[in-house]
Design a binder for these strands. Sequence first.
DNA 1: CATGAATGAGACTTCATTCAT
DNA 2: TATGAATGAAGTCTCATTCAT
Lengths: 173, 173, 173, 173
Amino acid sequence: MAEIAQGAGFAIGTLYQFFHGKEDLYVSMVIEKLQRMYQEIRDAVQAREDTLQKIEALVKAYFLFVENNAGFCTFFVRSDGATLPDVSNALKEQLINAYLGQIQFIEGLVSKGIKEGIFKADKSRDYAYALSWIIRGIIYDCLVGAHQGSLTDKTGLVIDIFLRGILKEGYRL
Amino acid sequence: MAEIAQGAGFAIGTLYQFFHGKEDLYVSMVIEKLQRMYQEIRDAVQAREDTLQKIEALVKAYFLFVENNAGFCTFFVRSDGATLPDVSNALKEQLINAYLGQIQFIEGLVSKGIKEGIFKADKSRDYAYALSWIIRGIIYDCLVGAHQGSLTDKTGLVIDIFLRGILKEGYRL
Amino acid sequence: MAEIAQGAGFAIGTLYQFFHGKEDLYVSMVIEKLQRMYQEIRDAVQAREDTLQKIEALVKAYFLFVENNAGFCTFFVRSDGATLPDVSNALKEQLINAYLGQIQFIEGLVSKGIKEGIFKADKSRDYAYALSWIIRGIIYDCLVGAHQGSLTDKTGLVIDIFLRGILKEGYRL
Amino acid sequence: MAEIAQGAGFAIGTLYQFFHGKEDLYVSMVIEKLQRMYQEIRDAVQAREDTLQKIEALVKAYFLFVENNAGFCTFFVRSDGATLPDVSNALKEQLINAYLGQIQFIEGLVSKGIKEGIFKADKSRDYAYALSWIIRGIIYDCLVGAHQGSLTDKTGLVIDIFLRGILKEGYRL
DNA sequence: CATGAATGAGACTTCATTCAT
DNA sequence: TATGAATGAAGTCTCATTCAT
């Protein structure tokens, strides 16, 4: 807390006028940042009309946010809200709910694609998860240094895998 | 440390004869567990001949390990080796190297599939990553409670997405 | 201080215009209250003519004040002016001086009784103290819950013990 | 706590191996000291046979303990177990129970005197309280400096007032 | 080698007080 | 004069680590 106060240019006591304690400070910052992230992503998606372009915008917006907030994301990715010994269940629940809201948003895109005859007809929710997994996986690996190259350059790869898998054209299981 | 010592039936001082400190203890345990995990997975894969069956065995072995080691995995997934304020770069490097070894192992499977004409001909390493992302994503979501259902039941889903994507048969981008 | 200011309807800063600090505030309040108590007691005593009735009035006035100011008295009895880590010697001295003034006042009553041939002829000051001890003792025990019943009901007991002790009539030491 | 640790020649951490916290330390010390005081007083009383001598021994033992433990008593008398903002109710209850035990012990002496025809026949409990009040009153006043002279010199005064009151021999109310 | 009492730096938090507005 | 946001010293407690036995 002392370090944070100094970094923010406040006295310790002042910090406690804004936040009730360490956990409150942490929770507030994470929630605020996540909401901004989810909002930016939704805005980027809604700026597009075409379903495939929406999906591309989604991936790009994710990557953009991470690149613009590398510090926060690195920290968050490495702690997953669990750095505090006992992050309040309130935060855990809020994080999961915000995440599920995002999944639902992605599912909307997938459903749209299904209606348009672009995507396979079932499992829209599982597909939404799948896209999230791939996006978060590549983000994670880049942030921890297990994967080289810029995130935004990987947009095509993510979309390609998500849409077409790795099976060779025409090959049947 | 006191708690760990008691749990292990040692005196605190004795713990410090085996490990140089808390970090050393943590690193040793994580490394040991991870190596066991990777080994179990490789063993499961090597017990199969067919490429697609090898991949299925890989996914299943991952899920099995997680289900059999839920405590460790939940902890690890939530801390990503970063719970200690300053996890030694040594650990980070070891974790990443072990992970990269696993990626390489998966890449071997993909390359085999490519040679056999099953998979698309390029980007074997990226495809290896992709499988890792999907597997880890679903594990993560199940462990934190953002995804319902048993992991092993999801094997088919993971493989389907990895192999064929979500694009409708015959649809062209 | 913040709580006090709010309770008083002032801003914190305003409190510091009236009092130099927490101790000054505390001292002022205690002194003011004690002076009122002593004044009420003297008034009650002076309203009587007869010596024994004056003493009865003294005891009753003490008890009445305590019952009417239970909050303050409970607090004061439990802290004895020592709650502040370093109550200024000024306060201690003022408290003791006010107390000694009260003892002197009671001594006046005792002396009056001696002159009237009611009380034993010497030790008027010690007897004054004794009455104070008995009164304060019962007040203390009632306030902390070690003695049951209403204070005013104990007036007779206090006076009886003070005047006649517990020795059986006619018994000689 | 730092000051206490230093005074005791321990490190702060060591203090926390003996006591769970500040309150535990405080409670333990007070209880321990009080029990010793009560024990010393009972021992002194039981060493006598004669009722009046028992009472004299009681008063003297009180005074002796206070003189031998002036530091503790001064502190305790000024805080009455209330120095800690929220002394656990457990302590308050223990203190009151120990005190009531002492009152009961004194009541035993008074009852003995009543049976022997020395004391007035009723109110044994109230008389026990009265003796306690007088003893504690004089102790208090001496400790805070409102009464001069050595405590042990006051034994006769206390007993005289307790037994015979201040009413002149032969005078009737 | 094993032990575990002792250590003390450092973390979080409170709250009486100040001072620019 | 009144305000109240800002201050930071001081307090309590934790826990990884050491070292004499």
